Simulated scan of single mutants.
Amino acid sequence: MRILLSLVLLMISPLSQAQAALTVEQVAPGIYLHFGEHQLPDRNNHGAIANIGFIIGDQCVAVIDSGGNPQQGAALKKAIEATTDTPVCYVINTHVHPDHIYGNAAFKAENVHFIGHYKLARAMVTRGQYYIDKAAEQLDIELTADNLIAPDMPVKKHMTINLGNRELVLTAHRTAHTDNDLTVYDKKTDTLWLADLLFIDHLPVIDGSLKGWLAELERLEKQDYHYVIPGHGPLVTDWPAAMQPQKKYLTLLLHEIRAMIAQGKFIEEAVKTVGRSERQNWKLFDQFHAKNVTTAFAELEWED
């Protein structure tokens, strides 16, 4: 059963400077999560749409994703301070997408290390100026390069950090959701923080490799976990059953796009027809499905 602890905190709105509430829930002993909403990032939510949170050890706190804007990062920091006197030692970014990294600057301090996939720094550099340019227009927030803090502890394959009587195993994955996906496994509670390698109810979004993502899911579903935390959606207590709708959707894309390529069909037709049977099963389908088909088609048309 989920242990509920709601903390109402202050967060300054980039638009109105009004007070807003940020809640965190203790979803497993020492693991606290703020649940995002299934929304497009926009000027109303200011990009604060993802699941973010923290894990508390005897000596250190590890932040897992810092939020979709600097103010949410500050609110998450206040949530930690209201929960524990244990200092933050690590900020772990699970991948480069804005809803997971824009709160980083709130945690910048001399004794805080930033951790990410070894390809995350390059992704931040590649996308950084675009992110900064679009933040004001799309999210109504002001960003500078200082908000995009690259990892000083990159993970090539695996890394274990100890928070004090609590070990976290960090894994850098092959290209899947993105080319810089990182997951966090808490040994103490048998919890896998899967981040955006798992979407529940929200349509999965491909920004990396369809085949790579399916390969990672097939490997992960062979493991047993007591809890799994998705990047978007509720806490999972029935792994791997909860992952099957996402696997089904991605597998359908794979098979239908391959069939169209074999028939000599073009990407424009694929966008109109592929995967449409899944439309009623996902939130934000219309917003992301066409991009998924386009990305997957570009990948599959060059496979051997």
Rank of each mutant, 00 (worst) to 15 (best):
R43A: 02
P240Y: 13
K222I: 05
L148N: 00
L197T: 13
L163A: 06
E25S: 14
L250G: 15
L76Y: 06
K134S: 12
A176W: 00
A241C: 10
A136E: 14
L7V: 13
I101D: 01
S277L: 10
E303Q: 15
H177W: 02
V96R: 10
L4I: 14
V236W: 12
G103R: 00
D85T: 11
A75D: 10
G275R: 02
L235Y: 14
A109W: 06
E299P: 08
P204T: 06
L254V: 11
T86Q: 06
T144G: 14
N292F: 09
A20N: 13
R2L: 09
G164S: 08
C89T: 08
L194W: 02
Q129T: 10
E218S: 08
N281M: 03
D65I: 01
Q246S: 15
K211Q: 15
I115P: 06
G30P: 06
Q246T: 15
E110R: 14
F297L: 07
V293K: 13
R166T: 05
E301W: 10
L9Q: 11
P98V: 00
H34S: 09
I267N: 03
D133N: 09
I261R: 03
L4N: 14
D133P: 01
A172T: 06
H255G: 10
A28P: 04
T251S: 15
N45F: 00
E278D: 09
A262F: 01
V236R: 15
A109I: 09
A136M: 10
D196Q: 00
E268I: 06
I55P: 01
I3S: 04
E81W: 06
G233W: 05
Y90K: 07
N44V: 11
D179H: 11
H255I: 11
D304R: 11
W239M: 08
L182F: 12
G116I: 07
V236Y: 14
E142A: 04
D186H: 03
I206L: 13
E167L: 07
S277Q: 13
T251M: 11
A242Y: 12
L148G: 00
T178V: 08
N45V: 00
D207V: 01
I49Q: 00
G212P: 05
T175V: 12
T86P: 04
